[in-house]
Design a binder for these strands. Structure first.
Lengths: 101, 101
DNA sequence: AATTTAACTTTGTATTTCAAAGTACTTTTA
DNA sequence: TAAAAGTACTTTGAAATACAAAGTTAAATT
């Protein structure tokens, strides 16, 4: 087991950040409001989870105006994809181990 | 995504409790010291994670003497197996979703 | 001018996590 | 037989995390 949970990254353990990263793996970009509706969080809480991922450089932010509205969109960085993939691989291996028997 | 992370259980989010449950899915019982070596935790920390799982009735405890030494062993309950399986199924679905494309 | 929208930041509380130290009881060792 | 060690905790306290609610900034709409 020592080896099995070694590839897990603390920042991905939260269901919310897990959700954010998953969403960004299948969508090249998503904006603040999309996340808000997807995850049903308060603005502040969502912002802090996004900031946590940004601090690790697992996601990157782009601020612009879309039409006349401000828009903040997020995408996974290469590093983020790499680390998150490793996290999922570890989980997958763990699931496989548990399922086999 | 709303649906995807719905089957996750908070208590299984921690890598340590994930490790404990995984170990108990493939071993019908493990004792305190085995966990200690498997997970490399201080006694107190291990005890509190085990207690957390016990409070949810996801694991059960058996205290006995083995030879002359006290021995505390743990096993997953049916409820624990059921809930943990659901957690892993949810993760598996999420991984599949992310991997597809 | 007042309201709304977007995206935060700040504040404050509650919860979680963990190491370290302390405890109780038994056994082994010097 | 007194001291040390092992098992399995509990308690304490500090640090990190999580979250809601309220406040903020700046532009856009009514």
């Amino acid at each position: 087991m020592k080896t099995s949970i070694h590839g897990l990254h603390k920042v991905f353990e939260s269901r919310i950040r897990l959700g954010i990263m998953s969403a960004l793996m299948v969508n090249q970009k998503l904006d603040f409001n999309e996340f808000k509706h997807l995850l049903e969080l308060t603005d502040g809480n969502l912002a802090s989870h996004l900031t946590a991922l940004e601090k690790h450089r697992f996601i990157q932010v782009k601020k612009q105006f879309v039409g006349k509205k401000p828009n903040t969109s997020y995408s996974a960085t290469d590093l983020g994809r790499q680390k998150f993939t490793q996290h999922l691989n570890t989980l997958e291996a763990l699931i496989k181990k548990v399922s086999q028997k």
